[in-house]
């Protein structure tokens, strides 16, 4: 590993450690942050292992989240069950394209891109990446910000099931996919949080040009 000194030194190279919680810079020998008492670590311990563990757990939960119904509706004796995708299709049929789009983005596009981006970031630490370091930092920032919004569909189910309880006329109940989906969102949030972006900068950018010349 060759340290990148073009911009200056990192806290770690200077024998310092910045608290991950309150950002106070301390000597690296300290165990705990003198300001907020958080345990001091220069890098998140076992970052990649934990990223992959949460990633796999999130992915496994995402499969039943799509196969089982998110909610079941009973209207005048007729019962129907909707999966995530099924719910989106019903919304389009009723003409609520905007709402369908919100649910589709929050429940399908965001989780899928989260899996892709986190995997890409973790792999980029394990082998040379074509993406610039800055681009990867931004990807991580975006995924941490956007990921939590996936929960919106779980809240919609909660509200509908709490409100639409009109006996024989209409009744909505949550399906097993709701908890699988919520778990998947929580696990992937933990996966993104476990990723330490500092790892992206701990080695020099890919030396593809130099390698070609050699």
């Amino acid at each position: 590993m060759v340290p990148d000194r073009r911009y200056g030194v990192t806290a770690r190279e200077a024998g310092l450690v910045a608290c991950h919680r309150c950002e106070l810079v301390s000597e690296k020998d300290l165990q705990r942050c003198p300001r907020c008492n958080a345990r001091l670590r220069s890098r998140k311990p076992q970052s990649l292992q934990r990223v992959w563990a949460w990633w796999i757990a999130g992915f496994l939960a995402y499969i039943p989240a799509n196969l089982y119904p998110m909610l079941t509706t009973r209207q005048l004796g007729r019962e129907s069950a909707d999966t995530i995708i099924g719910g989106v299709i019903v919304l389009i049929e009723y003409g609520s394209v905007g709402i369908a789009l919100i649910i589709f983005v929050a429940s399908v596009v965001v989780p899928m891109s989260k899996f892709l981006v986190i995997a890409l970031l973790a792999l980029s630490i394990m082998r040379p990446s074509r993406l610039s370091q800055k681009a990867r930092i931004h990807l991580h920032e975006v995924i941490e910000f956007v990921g939590r919004w996936s929960m919106v569909d779980v809240f919609v189910v909660a509200l509908l099931a709490a409100l639409v309880q009109l006996g024989a006329a209409a009744e909505v109940n949550p399906g097993p996919a709701a908890i699988c989906f919520a778990l998947s969102v929580a696990f992937t949030m933990l996966s993104a949080q476990a990723f330490d972006p500092r790892l992206i900068w701990d080695t020099l950018p890919a030396k593809s040009k130099m390698e070609k010349q050699a």
């Binding site: 919680r21 907020c36 919100i102 929960m151 809240f155 909660a158 409100l163």
Partner: peptide, 30 residues
Amino acid sequence: AQAFRLSQALRPWAMAEIFFLGSAVALVKI
């Protein structure tokens, strides 16, 4: 200081605004 540290750590898990978007979606549905 420890309490404020906890508050910062919990920040991603406070989802009031996401629930609010959920209410808007549920409203349009019913």
